[in-house]
Design a protein around this nucleic acid. Structure first.
Lengths: 175, 175
DNA sequence: GCAACAGCGTAAAAAATTTAGACAATCATC
DNA sequence: GATGATTGTCTAAATTTTTTACGCTGTTGC
């Protein structure tokens, strides 16, 4: 069986944390929980967390999700390699969009379906981007740049910060 | 004033197309419309479109948004450089999430606020504009890779497809 | 029509980078 | 305290990039 490592769940509702703990224990090697995101950054320094499940609302009575977005940003700033899945009681499209644009890996609404939650977390874990080689990255970027300037190699080379001849040579190598 | 180029609006409701046409004419140089996505790929071959606003539902009576997702995929496959903004009558979080994960630039629900729509489209257009230099791209990627392997340069170099010494030299140059 | 211009394809030499290979110094861990 | 992995550094050879340059093609403006 595949090893899904450590998951960190952050939610201010203890009952939900307990439920999630049982639900996730079967899949993840270690389930850590926090009732407040305050200490998440320092915790991530010490622990090797593979995926984070983050609730969006922590300020009592305020449900804008603003809190969650800020913590998402903080986490991604310090640990961009850890995928963060957002979870919220309110099926708010705008919030979901903002969350994903800020780098969340997925967005889940309460009440959740246990099987679906686990499936999504597994997917996210599996997709947690493999590192591309510099050559692959470069090739992809070059294709995009040339496309963007409709095949004008001179302009593409300029924005890429290389000479036209170098771009020409690189293209040759990419067939 | 900045030039926002050509926008292509795809929606099967003529009334909405007309409304959007007037709403967007003030910002975009040229507003093109399609009542069906069928011909979008061939149209994109001929026309230089800068941004696409795509409705999610075209099969009468079916509102799963499945149609929109498939067209989004088709557009992005052929023209990954053109940002696609999704629009739908149904504030469906799951649909928004799937759309964004497949590369949509934003997700808007009907009824829309004209000013907000224009603002979002402008943002998307502006964000799609920059092409990073190869050096910038490389530096960012290298940082991420090293981070991912917790500072183990040997492993990072390996997955990046370069030698450890080269990685070491590149890091020196990046201070 | 034709000059001016922008861009392409190519080339050769010079400059810079990357590689392979090596070695002592640390660090980790068992 | 032995063992293996990793780092920091070096050299010489191989490779890539830059520089500079030339002829060619297509477009634009007059």
């Amino acid at each position: 069986m595949q090893n899904y490592g450590t998951i960190l769940v952050i939610d201010d509702n203890e009952a939900i944390l307990t439920a999630l703990k049982y639900c996730l224990a079967g899949t993840f090697e270690k389930v850590m929980t926090l009732t407040s995101p305050e200490s998440v950054i320092s915790l991530l320094e010490q622990e090797d967390v593979n995926i984070i499940l983050l609730d969006m609302n922590f300020t009592l009575g305020v449900n804008s999700g603003q809190d969650g977005l800020l913590w998402l940003q903080a986490i991604r700033k310090h640990h961009p390699e850890i995928p963060v899945v957002l979870i919220t009681a309110y099926a708010d499209v705008s919030l979901a969009v903002r969350g994903l644009k800020r780098g969340a890996a997925d967005f889940i609404t309460k009440p959740w379906d246990n099987d679906e939650l686990v499936r999504k977390l597994k997917d996210v874990h599996d997709a947690a981007d493999e590192v591309a080689t510099l050559d692959e990255l470069e090739a992809e970027h070059i294709r995009r740049a040339i496309d963007r300037y409709h095949g004008n190699l001179t302009k593409a080379a300029e924005v890429l910060g290389i000479t036209r001849q170098t771009l020409y040579n690189k293209m040759k190598k990419l067939q």
